[in-house]
């Protein structure tokens, strides 16, 4: 709280103040930015702000445009998000304002004006998914519809801080998830038992990634905050586990044997059982499991 400024406009406060609060917050952010701070600004929710615009526009009897919002909605949204950025201050230091705006579209419909216009002016998008939220998968960020156009820009940082294979791991994980989602459609038609072992292993790996890596427990003392090194270690754990499993299957090992080797509950809970400062444990576990899978590969086919 010591480093936080909170602008609160609860829903029963005057609506005009709701419109102003977002500008007030940005101005305060810029004030600190000009002193060389890196400021993170969270606005929750910009949909309420847009609704305030709509309510006032209605009271002023302005001509309504899309869904009753005033026609200047996109330019107001643009003017807000364009206030984010890095600057060189007069003092010669560097400061920045980063913005995270929550949008809450009615009925979860991403085609409504506020979401659409926000996406036009921002470069990263975290789509919260109702189905994930219903299953209490937290954070409910949909891995397929969300994106960040900054990933190339931050890749060197990750490579320097956590190891050179960050980009490769990220791509491999995205590929597993994508393949699994296609296979799930097939499973809906023919059932999982009709798939070959290789494809069922993709489904298993995707499940491990979803529950063991993408899902986090915000209330757990260890899992609530995951340091970058641990994030990458976990990602590497699941991706390489998948790869060596795939190798074992290709050389003739049955999926049932691989499944017997894995204690799914224990793997999924690594994020909770391994503390942030003992990340090495994850690599040890990975080596053990890889050795186990390697043992299934007949000697003549070992690489």
């Amino acid at each position: 709280m010591e480093r936080t400024v909170l602008i609160a406009n609860t829903s029963n406060m005057p609506v005009a103040a709701r419109e102003a609060s977002i500008y007030l917050a940005t101005t305060i952010a810029e004030y600190f930015r000009d002193q060389g701070y890196d400021v993170a600004l969270m606005a929750d929710s910009t949909s309420r702000w847009a609704e305030a615009l709509r309510e006032i526009a209605g009271r002023l009897e302005e001509m309504p445009a899309e869904e009753g919002f005033p026609a200047y909605l996109p330019s107001r949204i643009a003017a807000f998000y364009e206030r984010a950025g890095r600057v060189r201050t007069l003092g010669g230091t560097e400061g920045s304002v980063s913005m995270v705006g929550a949008v809450s579209p009615p009925g979860g419909d991403f085609t409504e004006p506020v979401t659409q216009h926000t996406q036009r002016y921002t470069r990263a998008f975290w789509a919260l998914d109702r189905t994930l939220a219903n299953a209490r998968h937290y954070p409910a960020i949909n891995w397929q519809t969300s994106y960040s156009l900054y990933s190339a820009a931050v890749a060197p940082w990750w490579a320097k801080e956590t190891g050179p294979d960050w980009q490769a791991l990220r791509d491999a994980a995205a590929q597993i998830l994508e393949q699994a989602s296609r296979l799930e459609q097939l499973v809906r038609l023919v059932g999982a038992q009709a798939l070959p072992d290789r494809q069922r292993w993709i489904l298993d790996a995707a499940r491990l990634l979803k529950e063991g890596f993408l899902q986090q427990n915000a209330l757990h003392p260890v899992d609530a905050y995951c340091v970058p090194a641990k994030q990458v270690a976990l990602l590497r754990f699941f991706v390489e586990l998948y790869q060596s499993g795939q190798q074992a299957i290709e050389s003739g090992a049955p999926l049932t044997r691989i499944r017997q080797l894995l204690d799914v509950r224990r793997l999924v809970q690594i994020k909770e059982t391994v503390p942030n400062d003992q990340v090495d444990q994850i690599a040890h576990m990975l080596e053990e499991l890889k050795a186990g899978m390697n043992a299934m590969v007949p000697a003549e086919r070992k690489i």
């Binding site: 309510e55 526009a57 009271r59």
Partner: peptide, 17 residues
Amino acid sequence: EVPGRKAYPGYLYSDLA
């Protein structure tokens, strides 16, 4: 008054709040 979504007034949100 100018009607909003489904003819509910634009201030329905503020009023419910």
